[in-house]
């Protein structure tokens, strides 16, 4: 993903948004939007943590688990990648209570987004782990390490760095998907936008500002993941590959 256009466009859009907002008497709707923004950030963070956990568990189960666990992991990945995030959200929201499980809407939101992005993340983890060369595995056998030791000490550390950029993209996808939680009555940014739109009719201003906010968080995620990648790469071998 090109970095510079993103930043340039963020700055331009943000300024434009502020100009529009100041003309429009933004005091009417800005506090409400900020409240919603907080909820959006909260769900993004919670969902991301859950997604990473789900992805690693599912990917490692699919690759190394005994067959019943492997089967479960495959079913999880296929179902959550094969259906739509909104369907999953509604299913957890409306159908889970029929199993006697009633959760807070916020919990449902984090659960649905984490499970959804985790399924995509599982493929990222799997790809990165299988990209570690066979020679590395063979060296661990020759050194009499167990498979768990090999995975934990040798293979996963090498798989982590190449995983970071695709995870950055997934976190941005997750951020974008949080807008759907407004449809199960959570007062996130998208929900507040509609609410404010219905009361103030400042459609253009409100939705522009909201879009710019999402963009700003996306840029933040990109920048954070870039630094994380640079930091993590320092511990790994640099220069020409052996």
């Amino acid at each position: 993903m090109a970095h510079r256009p993103l930043v340039v466009c963020a700055i331009l859009a943000f300024t434009a948004g502020l100009v529009i907002a100041s003309f429009a008497g933004f005091r009417e709707f800005l506090p409400g939007l900020l409240e919603g923004a907080l909820v959006t950030v909260e769900i993004t963070l919670g969902g991301s943590v859950l997604a990473v956990i789900c992805a690693f568990v599912a990917a490692l189960s699919k690759m190394f688990g005994p067959w019943p666990i492997r089967g479960l992991a495959v079913v999880y990945i296929e179902i959550f990648r094969g259906t739509s995030a909104l369907v999953q959200l509604f299913w957890l929201f409306f159908v889970l209570p029929r199993f006697g499980i009633t959760l807070e809407p916020l919990t449902v939101a984090i659960l649905a987004l984490g499970l959804n992005v985790g399924a995509y993340g599982a493929e990222v983890v799997r790809g990165a782990v299988s990209a570690v060369s066979r020679g590395q595995w063979e060296a661990t056998v020759a050194l009499n390490m167990s498979r768990a030791q090999a995975l934990r000490r040798i293979v996963l550390p090498q798989a982590l760095v190449p995983m970071i950029p695709p995870w950055g993209n997934l976190f941005i996808e997750l951020l974008k998907t949080t807008a759907l939680v407004s449809l199960i009555t959570i007062s996130d940014l998208a929900f507040k936008a509609q609410e404010m739109n219905a009361t103030t009719y400042r459609t253009v201003e409100i939705f522009s500002i909201v879009l710019v906010f999402y963009l700003a968080v996306a840029v933040l995620i990109t920048v954070a993941m870039r630094s994380l990648e640079r930091f993590a790469a320092r511990g790994l071998a640099r220069g020409p590959a052996q």
Partner: peptide
């Protein structure tokens, strides 16, 4: 009982020379 040295070394790229030699003695 057996050790092996490979044609393409297969050193662990994320560990220093010393750490490469310490890893298995410690964990195994």
């Amino acid at each position: 009982k057996i050790g092996m040295v490979f044609q393409h070394f297969n050193l662990f790229p994320h560990m220093s020379a010393l750490k490469n030699c310490m890893e298995a003695p410690r964990t195994v």
